[in-house]
Amino acid sequence: MDKENKRNKLTVNDILVIAPYNAQVHDLTEAIPGVRVGTVDKFQGQEAPVVIFSMATSSPEDAPRGMEFLYSLERLNVAVSRAKAVFILVASPKLFEPDCMSPQQMKLANALCRLREMAVR
């Protein structure tokens, strides 16, 4: 329902798909034409009723730019805060079990794990 308690049909314009890597953005853009797909930087200041955040890697070890980039608190915050109604996280279960090598990595992993704990399933 919108602000006036009016029901509206969900359209592709109501969905943002966010991915951390440009290569994933490219692949998603081709796979789901018509849906807005981009990195968090592209969607700064924009919102949508539904936001889908694709983590785009199977494990922290496979992350091209390292755990600090993939688990960035700023990126996670921007992705979550773009959603007006529903936030969907698409992630491998392995991303919730990283081998942290520093207190900073533990902090980053904890934020992602806390997001999952708080999720309504």
Rank of each mutant, 00 (worst) to 15 (best):
L70S: 10
D14M: 08
S102V: 03
A83N: 09
P60T: 05
R114M: 04
R121Q: 12
K42S: 06
R82Y: 00
A85K: 11
K6T: 07
G45C: 09
R65A: 05
K84E: 15
I15P: 08
G66E: 06
C100V: 15
S81E: 12
A79R: 08
S54A: 13
I15H: 06
S54M: 13
G38S: 09
F43T: 07
K107S: 09
A111P: 00
V35F: 15
D62R: 06
A31I: 02
L10E: 07
M101A: 06
S54V: 14
R116H: 13
T29D: 02
F43W: 05
C113I: 13
C100Y: 09
K6A: 02
G66P: 09
G34D: 07
M118A: 07
V51G: 12
L70G: 14
K84L: 12
V25M: 01
R121C: 06
D27E: 15
E97T: 11
P20N: 02
I52V: 15
A79Q: 10
R82M: 00
N77Q: 03
G45I: 13
V35R: 12
N110T: 00
V35M: 10
S58V: 05
N8I: 11
K9Y: 09
R121H: 11
I88D: 04
M106S: 10
S81L: 14
